[in-house]
Each structure stands twice: as structure tokens, then as C-alpha cells.
Design a protein around this nucleic acid. Structure first.
Lengths: 349, 349
DNA sequence: TTGAAAGCGGTACCAG
DNA sequence: CTGGTACCGCTTTCAA
């Protein structure tokens, strides 16, 4: 591995000159010198040592990505997008699975400091935990994805950016789709633990229901999952909640599931009970995980515009690393409806 | 961020002493000094700068993980296990999605050098591509997971470790399970592109078939996927191949799918054609992705003992970084059968 | 326009 | 047992 001195010697110039071309300050340089340096780099197959650069400049060219579990397809897709966006700007991704555990999160943040990583994307974590605020105070730039803040009291003076789908709109969009397709007895099925994004989805759901004068026919059905980070648990919960749905009188004919995994479990549970989907009951999810396409009937879902969201997250992260005085902001993205086959189409025979 | 000099000053000792306790060379040290240093570290909330350590020692405390696509659940699970194993040894994981593209792989390897990463786990890639051998020559330690070598001619003098499930045994185990459960018309359904692991699975399949005198009733059914790295593609291929399966005469009553994703698509396609699973046709996959549990009927599958395999991969990686003279080896792991509900149980009524 | 040299935060050798 | 110091590879003044 050749180093900058080798290149300088080989080109018969000083180290500084090589450093200058490395950093794009070759405008004032004599062309012949520039050429000689370029040549030398080529011939020695020189690649600057990022570690040394980093030690000197404090710039890591790495961003951290903290996810509850990479095995959850939503986060796998997020990770791919982040990797893509980072690569486009010559950054690499340091991944951490924290299973929503405080000690893992804490350890991950400490490692980010130790590795000189200045920016981290934090997905779906309880950002009110003190170690996040603490890390922010110590200069770590963070962008939150799909916040789980328990209250929005803090919004506006958070120490990090927040990028989410407009969950109120998503809840409304889901409910409205069901209503449009002719459903009149609506239910919102969810995990009992209330996060801000869940509260927003429910809020949107009820706002649509209200607009259509269906308030008396709408309700929330909830149950408690054993663990909240896997999809298996969500699916199991959905399956369990099928019974609860069928106990309702009058029985719902349209259901919004808080996320696709739960919706898929719910469909399985309903089917086991002899219910036909969508003929007897329509189901719509929120998330649009790849699995939605593979079940039968394929699950209609409301999806976040992930690529755009990730672009903004990475952009903000790098901008705020550059210029720490930028005030953190909140970014909301409109959801999109992906129509598949789990919602009845009354226009068809 | 306090540095080692701050600690030394605070404790009234020299930098070297602090460095010594940092590196566990405190045995010869006066206890009082040790204590003072410990105290100082505490009080200043000192965390050694890994970047500086790395520049000095060349040790990165990071390992690279190259996967075709993190969105493929098999690789997501692999990634989680690698992250776990790495964490247990105080390492972090640098992730790269390369979509099996040469330029992406090449760029990833170069970045590993630039970041001072000395060990990389390479999953399911075409290891005969020259940039891998080249990276090995330049000192990068690699462990291959689930090799895609087109021929085993090179085995034994490869520049990297190779860790795989015993694919012959896996193919045999799958076929034997079907036969035991009463299937007599067997088919092996696969993607047409032949990798070594695929060839081995097919070999195992036929060896079981032969042992039971069923050779005349067994065949391979294959199709070409548009892209080979995603699961969506595999699932689509499976769906497509359902028609081909149903054209066979006599119709198969037991199918081994080259991987779970394809098996899941196949089940979807068969179901759409009115075939009941497992009553009409049994399906068994190879992989055991989390999805297998979420579809209906849940997919019986042959699984690699992933946790053990990852433990070996990480162990070998770190051992060979420590001592580059260790000869690369090949490690084969026996598969396990995970019984679910996609294979008929003739013992039940 | 180019070069010399200090220093980023550690490590490790050698002296005392 | 502890301290002084050269050095890892690069960036960045400051001088020439």
C-alpha cells in the first residue's frame, strides 16, 4: 500500500502538492506537476488512507444506521436505500441492530463516537431515551426515521431531525379507501402500545370516519404483542386478534391494520375462521412490506415514499455535519396507496 | 472528548502509563497508580479514539460484510447473526449491498482497504472473479459464505476460507423427507443458473431418489429469473414455474424448491391454479427464511445451522487477521430439517 | 506555485 | 515500574 510520501517521491514533488491534488486544490498548480502527480498515483495504485484522513480532519465518511432489527423487512428495505444514498456520496454504512434495547443503543452510540462517525440515522426508536439527547449534546448529528416519541410536546426543539410519513394522512387514506369501496363497519386493529406514529394513524382513521358520518360504526381493536420488533410477533398478534374482530357486533366489513405484518396475520386468522377476504371482510395495511405481495389475497397497503425520505435523511445528515448550526427540522411525507386484492371492489360483479 | 494526554495529566502520570492500562499491561503497575488512572478515565468520561488506535496499529475493529442484497431475508438473517457475533468481540459491521455487480464489489473491497478493514465476509458471490483473489493477495482476509464457485477445482488452494451448509446432504434430506411422507413423484424446482451450491443440492436430491429406486419418477424443473439477487424475483419465478410443474405427466406429488423464496412463490402459483398444499402436492424449501413461518401453509424447510456457521466465520476471520500464515480451509455444516405444514403427513387421517 | 513541519490521538520502544 | 519520544498517513498553515 503506497502512501502519500511514496507518491510525492515518485513524482518528484512534496507531500503537500500531492495532498493538494487529493483535495481538489489543483487549480493554481502547474499542469505538468499535476500530470506527474496523477501519473504517480496511477502507477503506484495509490488510494489515500481514510483512517489517516479521518484522524486529521475528524471526517469519517461513514454514517451509522441504527435499526431495531435488520430481519424486519421494513428495516431491510430502509437499509438498502440508506446504503444506496450513502454510496452516492462516497459514504459507507455502519449497521447496528439494537432490538430496542437501551444498552445496545447506548453501546452503538458510544461506538459511533469512538469510530469518529458524526452522523447517525436512528430508525423507529424511543428517541426520548436520554442517551440520544446526550449523544446529540456531545455533537452527534442524528436523523430520526419514523419517530416513536410518546408525545409531541418536544417537537420543535428536538436535537435531531425527524423524517416520517404523514401518519395522520396514512390513517385517513386507508379508511377512505375502505369507505370508497363500500365498507361501512370499520375497525382499526393495532398493537396496544401507543407510539406517536400509531396515535397519528388512529387519528387519521377517525377523521375520515367522521367526515363520512360513520363514527358510530368505527372502533379500535387492540392486543398486546410479546415483543415489538419482529414481524413474527406482529403476525402472531394479528392472528390472535382475528377472534376479537369476529366477536364485534355488528361485525366489521373493513379493517385497517396498523401495519402489514399484523394485517397479514389477521387475514390468516380470519381465513382460518372461515371468513373470505375481501368478500366478507376487507383488510388494508400500512407499510407495504415485500411480503404484502406474496400472501393471498395480496394485501392492499398504504406506503411511505421511502426513497425520497431516505434522500432527505442522508442530505440533512451530511448538511448538519457540515454546518452544525442548522436547526433540526421535521419532515413529513405524504403516503401512497398500493392497491392489491384484499379490499373488496364493489364495481366488479 | 478527552484524550489520552488529558487523562495522563489528570492522573499525574505519563501518557505511556495510561496507554498501558488501556492495553491491559497493568500487571506490573503499582496499584495506586492504576487506581488513579482508572479514576481519571472515569472522571473525564474518557473513551479511546479508535481511529487513532487504528492508524497506529492497523487494526480496525470492523469487519466488512458483502451481501448481494440485504432485502433478501436469507442475507438479513445472516447479517443479524454476523452483527451479533462481531459485537461479542467488540467489532462493528460495515455493510455493503453489491447486487452481484462486479463494479460494486470492487468498490466495496477498495473501501475496505481505505478504511483499514482487514477482514470481510463475502456472502454468496462469484468468488472466482479476479478482484477477490486480488484483494486476498493484497492482504485482505476473506471468508466466503455459501460459495458460488463454478467448479471445485480450486478448492484446497483458495485464498479464503469457505463456510457452507453441506448442500448435498440438504438436497438429500429434503428428498428423503418427501419420500418418507409418502410422495412418489418427485421434482426439484430451481433457477436455471447453475452455481456450485445448486449443483450440490440437485446431486443430493438424486442420490436420495436413487436410493429409493425412484429415479424414473424424479426430474428437475427449471426457469430463468430476471435478476438473481432479490427475493421478489425468486418468488415470481416460483409462481411462474407452477404452470410448468402442472404440465408434467405424471404430475409430481412432492417438490423440493431450491430455496424458500422460490418455494413460497411456487405455493402461491399452485394455489392460484386450484392445487391444495399439501394434500395434492407437498412442497419443501431449503433456507428456512423467517417468511417460511408466515405463509400458509407454513413452509417445511431444510435449514443451515446459521449461528454456528457465523461463529466459525467470525472466529476464522479474526484468527487469520491475527496470524496470516494460517491456511484457509473449508468448513461444511450439516443441515437440519424444520417440519411445518407444507408436506403431507400420511400418518394423519 | 511548491515545500517544510507541526500535529491529529494513540502505541511501543527504550532509557532511567 | 514509569516517562520520553518517534511515528502511523494525512492535512494544513506558513515561508520561501
Amino acid at each position: 500500500m503506497a502512501n502519500i510520501r511514496d507518491v510525492a517521491r515518485h513524482a518528484g514533488v512534496s507531500v503537500s502538492s500531492v495532498s493538494n491534488v487529493l483535495n481538489g486544490r489543483s487549480d493554481q498548480m502547474r499542469l505538468a506537476t499535476l500530470e506527474r502527480i496523477r501519473q504517480a498515483m496511477q502507477e503506484l495504485n495509490y488510494h489515500p488512507n481514510r483512517v489517516a484522513q479521518q484522524l486529521k480532519t475528524g471526517q469519517a465518511k461513514m454514517i451509522g444506521l441504527l435499526v431495531p432489527s435488520i430481519v424486519n423487512p421494513s428495516f431491510a428495505v430502509l437499509t438498502r436505500e440508506v446504503d444506496r444514498a450513502a454510496k452516492a456520496r462516497q459514504y459507507r454504512v455502519l449497521l447496528g441492530n439494537t432490538y430496542r434495547q437501551e444498552d445496545e443503543e447506548q453501546a452503538f452510540l458510544e461506538d459511533m463516537f469512538a469510530h469518529g462517525v458524526q452522523g447517525v440515522i436512528v430508525a423507529a426508536s424511543a428517541m426520548e431515551r436520554p442517551h440520544f439527547a446526550n449523544a446529540a449534546r456531545l455533537g452527534l448529528v442524528m436523523v430520526n426515521y419514523d419517530s416513536r416519541m410518546p408525545s409531541d410536546a418536544l417537537l420543535g426543539n428536538q436535537p435531531f431531525d425527524s423524517v416520517s410519513m404523514d401518519n395522520v394522512a396514512a390513517g385517513r387514506m386507508a379508511a377512505e379507501h375502505l369507505i370508497e369501496r363500500g365498507c361501512r363497519q370499520l375497525a382499526f386493529v393495532t398493537e396496544a402500545f401507543l407510539t406517536i406514529s400509531r396515535a397519528h394513524k388512529i387519528e387519521g382513521f377517525f377523521s375520515a370516519v367522521r367526515d363520512h358520518g360513520l363514527t358510530d360504526n368505527a372502533r379500535v381493536i387492540e392486543g398486546k404483542a410479546l415483543a415489538a420488533y419482529g414481524d413474527t410477533e406482529m403476525t402472531e398478534l394479528g392472528r390472535t386478534l382475528a377472534a376479537k374482530v369476529l366477536q364485534q357486533a355488528p361485525r366489521p366489513d373493513g379493517i385497517v391494520a396498523i401495519n402489514d405484518a399484523l394485517g397479514i396475520g389477521l387475514m390468516a386468522g380470519l381465513r382460518d375462521a372461515g371468513v373470505r377476504i375481501p368478500q366478507d371482510i376487507s383488510v388494508i395495511g400500512i407499510d407495504n412490506i415485500p411480503l404484502a405481495d406474496l400472501v393471498h389475497p395480496a394485501l392492499t397497503s398504504v406506503m411511505p415514499p421511502l426513497t425520497e425520505m431516505v434522500a432527505v435523511m442522508v442530505e440533512r445528515l451530511l448538511a448538519r455535519i457540515e454546518n452544525p448550526s442548522i436547526t433540526p427540522g421535521e419532515f413529513l411525507f405524504p403516503p401512497r396507496l398500493i392497491t392489491r386484492h384484499s379490499v373488496i371492489d364493489s364495481t366488479e360483479p
